[in-house]
Each structure stands twice: as structure tokens, then as C-alpha cells.
């Protein structure tokens, strides 16, 4: 019955956000990775490349990648999604990043404005050695200012249950 309630969240929207992809933010992101690729930081170099301008590393769609401060999931999961999860004993505070899957279709350029739309793609429960766990897969679709599909991302979040 609980897992039935949890599965009700599949397909629900988690929200729509807009990002301006700033050149300085691309550079700070690449610096944080330790990635010195000139395509992400050197305007002269990037202009002479077949991209013609600075691009963002795959996986950067504007700052912040996650909602800032606090538990990211409390913000990312509206009440109607967290409600059924909390009823089943899951708490956002126990959440961990499980992994990521990307499809990249087009480059992200400095100066782009991206729109991201996120839905709950899947929710699965598993019982392991440490008790009950819930795998929540959020799918985000990124479009640029021309409406072109840039990328799709599927992020897995793992929550542990406090109930036995």
C-alpha cells in the first residue's frame, strides 16, 4: 500500500527553472573541476574553433546546478511529492546522490538562456542490508532560447527509510 502511494508521484512535475549561462560562471565551474580546456575559457581560441564561441562543459547548464543551501531535495521536491515519501518513512535528510545519466544533443553557449523542466521519471523501493531504500529518478529536459533541445538528464537520488 505504501509503495502504491509512492508510485503516485511518478510523472509529476518538479518544476520549471530558467538559467542564464554566464561566461564567468562557466569559467568558475571549469576551474572547480580543474579542467583547463580553452573551449570553456579562452574567447580567442573558442572563436577559431568550429563552435565559434565559448561553450560550457557537458553537464553545466547554468548556476546553480542544485538549489542553494539546505537540503537540496526539500526545495526540489514540492510537498505533494515529499508527502507520500515521508509517510513511507523516507526523509530528505537521508538523501544521497546515486548517479546521473545524460543525453547531450547540442552545445550550451555562453550567453544562452536555458529552460529546464523536471519530472519524476520513476520511483522504486528496494530492501537491502541497511533497510528500505527508495530510488527516485528525476528527468530534466533542457531547452535553449530558440526552443532547441539541448540535453536530457536523469538524476538518481537515494533515500533511506527511518521506519522498519
Amino acid at each position: 500500500m505504501q509503495s502504491g502511494e509512492i508510485s503516485q508521484v511518478i510523472g509529476k512535475s518538479v518544476g520549471v527553472r530558467m538559467f542564464e549561462v554566464e561566461k564567468g560562471a562557466i569559467r568558475r565551474f571549469a576551474d572547480a573541476v580543474g579542467d583547463g580546456n580553452p573551449l570553456f575559457r579562452d574567447v580567442e581560441y573558442a572563436r577559431k574553433s568550429h563552435y565559434g564561441d565559448i561553450i560550457a562543459p557537458p553537464g553545466f547548464f547554468g548556476w546553480p546546478l542544485k538549489q542553494p543551501m539546505g537540503s537540496p531535495l526539500v526545495v526540489e521536491f514540492p510537498g505533494e511529492l515529499m508527502g507520500p515519501l515521508m509517510k513511507a518513512g523516507y526523509m530528505a535528510a537521508t538523501s544521497l546522490d546515486g548517479g546521473m545519466e545524460y543525453d547531450f544533443f547540442l552545445p550550451v553557449y555562453a550567453g544562452d538562456t536555458l529552460t529546464s523542466t523536471t519530472i519524476v521519471k520513476d520511483v522504486r523501493e528496494r530492501t537491502g542490508r541497511g533497510g528500505k531504500m527508495c530510488f527516485i529518478i528525476l528527468e530534466t529536459t533542457y531547452l535553449n532560447q530558440n526552443g532547441d533541445l539541448i540535453a536530457k538528464a536523469r538524476a538518481t537520488t537515494i533515500m533511506r527509510s527511518m521506519s522498519m
Binding site: V33, G34, D35, N37, L39, S49, H50, Y51, P57, P58, G59, L96, D97, G98, G99, M100, E101, Y102, D103, F104, T156
Partner: peptide
Amino acid sequence: RQWLVQLMTDWIGDRGWLKRFSCQY
């Protein structure tokens, strides 16, 4: 994840395209 993305973008060069990528923590 971004370290692994860099592994690939360094390897494929400017004219290579990373089409799909996944990893698990």
C-alpha cells in the same frame, strides 16, 4: 562525474562530441 566528463572531453578533442554519459556514485 565532471572529472569523468573531462576525461572524455580531453580525449575526444575539440571536434569530438560527448553524446551519452552516465555514472553511479
